[in-house]
């Protein structure tokens, strides 16, 4: 049993809940346990540093300090979200390599009675841990439902493989670890040229034409390569490519249908888990047809559609519609 410290991050609590659920489902298969950093705070994503500079490092360093305190012998701190991973890894690296920054950040931490000694933690992404600690052979041995005939475009996005300050992925523009992982699961993996291109990150909130074009390039690329689905390792990439795909279609008058799942969900399917246990079905662009190719039956969406109009003879008071009531 390998024990890892785990920084879940805000996205994985909700918008990327399927990522967390599928991770927790497959963890035991590979004898991995993940222990949350107690009382962790937001990493600041790509926003905090745009307003305050030194505090943005102190914000992340609080998590590092809490994780180091809680360590229990585990030196590895893992994260799944790209932004969380990069912020943790970058702060750790910068504090280790820059004595002046280390001093300033620790002076801020002291105001909260905390201290972080650079180098006491190794920050690693979930994908890195799966491929290099568990190993592809061990993963292959667990496969009970090979992903044969499923054409997958592996999509890494930016912040896990770049700047990769401690060189965990060996290539900033052409990484291979997720390609190899998906191959080990039996999938047909596309040599996807856009695999480390940017999804636009927070651009959907700032400039829609810029954001939509960046999303379109990726979905178009995967479609051209006849991918059944795209697989990602980042909550922001998943949200942009999945939840905004409908709007991108409207904007460009196109009709793309490219499901986007997390690599942990694909691992779960290959290990024989049911789609519900992996959070499959919560995506906007349904993966139902794609997954039928490997004999997985994703239940039709069960949510009851809201009636457009109230019946004329309905005597009850008009009430706001609560989707939870119908589940």
């Amino acid at each position: 049993m390998t024990h890892y410290l785990f920084y879940p991050g805000c996205s994985m609590q909700r918008s990327a809940r399927p990522y967390l659920d599928s991770l927790m489902t497959i963890g035991p298969d590979m004898d991995m346990t993940f222990e949350d950093v107690q009382d962790w705070n937001c990493c600041g994503a790509t926003e905090y540093a745009a307003v305050h500079r030194i505090p943005s490092y102190a914000l992340v360093a609080r998590n590092l300090a809490l994780a180091a305190q809680q360590m229990n012998g585990a030196r590895t701190l893992t994260a799944g979200c790209s932004a969380c991973y990069l912020n943790l890894a970058k702060t750790e690296n910068y504090m280790r390599r820059n004595a002046e920054l280390n001093l300033v950040v620790n002076e801020a931490l002291a105001a909260g009675n905390l201290h972080y000694e650079p180098g006491s933690l190794q920050v690693r992404h979930l994908l890195d841990v799966m491929v290099n600690d568990v190993g592809l052979e061990a993963i292959r041995a667990r496969v009970t439902r090979p992903l044969t005939n499923l054409r997958i475009a592996p999509y890494y996005g930016c912040m896990v493989v770049r700047p990769d300050l401690d060189d965990h992925f060996r290539s900033e523009e052409y990484p291979m670890s997720m390609d190899r992982l998906l191959k080990a699961l039996g999938a047909e993996v596309i040599d996807f040229p856009l695999k480390t291109h940017c999804c636009g990150g927070h651009m959907t909130q700032i400039s829609q034409p810029v954001a939509f074009e960046m999303i379109r390039r990726l979905v178009y690329g995967a479609t051209q390569y006849k991918a059944d689905l795209m697989v990602t390792l980042c909550p922001m990439c998943q949200l942009n490519l999945d939840a905004y795909q409908g709007e991108v279609n409207q904007h460009f008058k196109m009709n793309y249908h490219m499901p986007v799942l997390y690599f942990t969900q694909l691992m779960g399917l290959a290990f024989g888990h049911e789609p519900e246990a992996l959070g499959i079905g919560k995506e906007f662009v349904s993966a139902r047809d794609a997954l039928a190719r490997i004999g997985v039956d994703v239940p039709e969406e069960t949510a009851v559609k809201r009636p457009l109009h109230r019946a004329k003879d309905d005597p009850s008071l008009p009430m706001p519609y609560m989707p939870e009531e119908n589940q």
């Binding site: 009382d39 705070n41 305050h52 500079r53 030194i54 505090p55 490092y57 102190a58 914000l59 609080r62 300033v104 950040v105 002076e107 801020a108 931490l109 002291a110 105001a111 909260g112 009675n113 905390l114």
Partner: peptide
């Protein structure tokens, strides 16, 4: 422990160049 986080951030703002 929001108070702890706020104290850290307040001190960090004082240390900003």
């Amino acid at each position: 422990n929001l108070g702890q986080l706020q104290a850290i951030l307040a001190r960090a703002k004082e240390l900003e160049a």
